[in-house]
């Protein structure tokens, strides 16, 4: 059985001339333990597709139709309360801008503890702190005790993104959604963070939905990929197959541009 199944997803935003379909009939499945990629250029609808999985499409947009089932449960018909139990625990998310993902007035430690205790209120402060430190170590943060007490602005972008990943892992999710997690980072840091993600995936047998505009990153991370353009999935398949022999005109031109710059 697939972990996540999306069928005919449509997301609409009110535009100047009626509703604008930003995601238009998107369907795909992610199997247990799989890393599935969505690649596309800006405005292709890839981020909104990801946000739909947690029913987090920002106002005034809304999910117009479609079905999203996670472990056989229908996400779109769930109550807000059951959704909250899934968000950050069964499905967690890492965003592009590590700087914007943290609240600047709290230490990263207290934000990690908060993430843990939202879903495990029975864990006391001591226990939550231990879990947080354990995951900081797992994401190869040196001197986790010190970093635990630091404020976000004192840490580099790469560090913040590692902590973000730790935060996404603390509640042992089944699926992590990563939306351009390395786009804001320098190349050398990007390489380290991607290596970390590969390692974690092996260790925790995690499934990932990996969103990127960069075919190089997708190739490194994902077994299968969907190419999105103007709200539609143009082509889905094994990453190596798409890169070596793309079928659709859009994919062909995209791959050509990437190759010209490689």
């Amino acid at each position: 059985m697939s972990l996540l199944k999306i069928e005919n997803l449509e997301v609409c935003f009110p535009g100047p001339d009626g509703l604008l379909k930003v995601v238009d009939g998107v369907s795909f499945e992610i199997a247990e333990g799989e890393v599935f990629g969505i690649v596309g250029e800006s405005g292709s609808g890839k981020t909104l597709t990801a946000l739909s999985v947690l029913k987090l499409v920002p106002y005034p947009g809304r999910i117009a139709s479609g079905q999203i089932s996670f472990k056989g449960e229908d996400i779109l018909s769930m109550s807000e309360e059951s959704l909250r139990n899934i968000r950050g625990s069964k499905i967690s998310m890492v965003f592009q801008e590590p700087a914007a993902s943290f609240d600047p007035v709290f230490t990263v430690g207290s934000q990690l503890v908060e993430a843990i205790r939202i879903h495990r209120p029975q864990a006391n402060a001591r226990r939550a702190r231990d879990i947080a430190l354990e995951y900081l170590e797992k994401t190869h943060i040196q001197d986790p005790e010190r970093v635990f007490g630091e404020y976000p602005h004192r840490l580099s972008g790469g560090m913040k993104q590692r902590i973000m990943i730790a935060m996404a892992l603390v509640n042992s999710p089944d699926l992590i959604i990563l939306d351009e997690p390395t786009t804001a980072l320098d190349v050398t840091i990007q390489a380290q963070v991607l290596d970390l993600l590969c390692e974690i995936r092996e260790a925790e047998k995690l499934s990932m939905l990996f969103i990127s505009h960069d075919f190089g990153v997708i190739k490194k991370m994902c077994g299968r990929v969907a190419v999105m353009n103007k709200g539609k999935i143009v082509e889905t398949g094994a990453t190596s197959r798409i890169i070596d022999s793309p079928k659709e005109a859009y994919t062909i031109s995209l791959i050509e541009s990437v190759k010209a710059l490689s």
Binding site: T188, A191, L194, G216, V217, K219, I243, I255, K259
Partner: peptide, 11 residues
């Protein structure tokens, strides 16, 4: 060297 090895090409 580090910089070059960090570049992710598709070829």
């Amino acid at each position: 060297k580090i910089l070059l090895s960090s570049v992710l090409g598709i070829i």
